[in-house]
Simulated assay, not measured.
Amino acid sequence: MAAQTNRRELAHPSRVEIRLEDVLHALSDPQRLRIVCEVAREAEGLTCSQVGLPVAKSTLTHHFRVLRECGVVQQVYRGTAKMNRLRREDLEVLFPGLLDGVLRAARAQAGRGAG
Rank of each mutant, 00 (worst) to 15 (best):
M1G: 15
M1D: 13
M1Y: 10
A3T: 13
T5C: 11
N6F: 12
N6I: 02
R7I: 12
R7D: 14
R8S: 09
E9V: 15
A11M: 08
A11C: 08
P13C: 10
P13H: 09
S14R: 15
R15I: 13
E17L: 05
L20Q: 12
E21A: 14
D22H: 13
V23Q: 04
V23L: 09
L24A: 07
L24T: 08
H25K: 11
D29F: 07
D29V: 10
P30A: 10
Q31N: 14
R32K: 11
L33A: 15
L33Y: 07
I35N: 01
V36W: 04
E38P: 03
A40E: 12
A40V: 02
R41W: 00
E42T: 13
E42Y: 07
A43R: 15
E44Q: 14
G45T: 07
L46T: 05
C48R: 11
S49G: 04
Q50K: 10
Q50E: 15
V51Y: 07
V51T: 06
G52V: 03
G52A: 13
L53C: 05
L53Q: 03
P54C: 02
V55Y: 07
V55L: 13
A56S: 13
T61G: 05
T61Y: 09
F64T: 01
F64Y: 11
R65K: 14
R65T: 14
R65W: 02
V66F: 01
L67V: 05
L67G: 01
R68K: 08
R68Q: 12
C70K: 10
C70Q: 09
G71P: 05
Q74V: 10
Q74A: 12
Q74M: 10
Q75V: 02
Y77H: 12
G79Y: 01
T80Q: 10
A81T: 00
A81E: 11
K82R: 15
K82Y: 01
M83K: 05
N84F: 01
R85A: 00
L86S: 06
R87N: 06
R87K: 07
R88P: 00
D90K: 00
D90T: 03
L91R: 00
E92D: 13
E92M: 02
V93A: 09
L94C: 01
L94D: 04
F95C: 01
G97H: 12
G97W: 10
L98K: 04
D100S: 13
G101H: 01
G101L: 03
G101Y: 05
V102W: 02
L103S: 06
R104Y: 05
R104D: 12
A105N: 06
A105C: 05
A106C: 10
R107E: 14
Q109S: 12
A110Y: 01
G111I: 00
G115F: 02
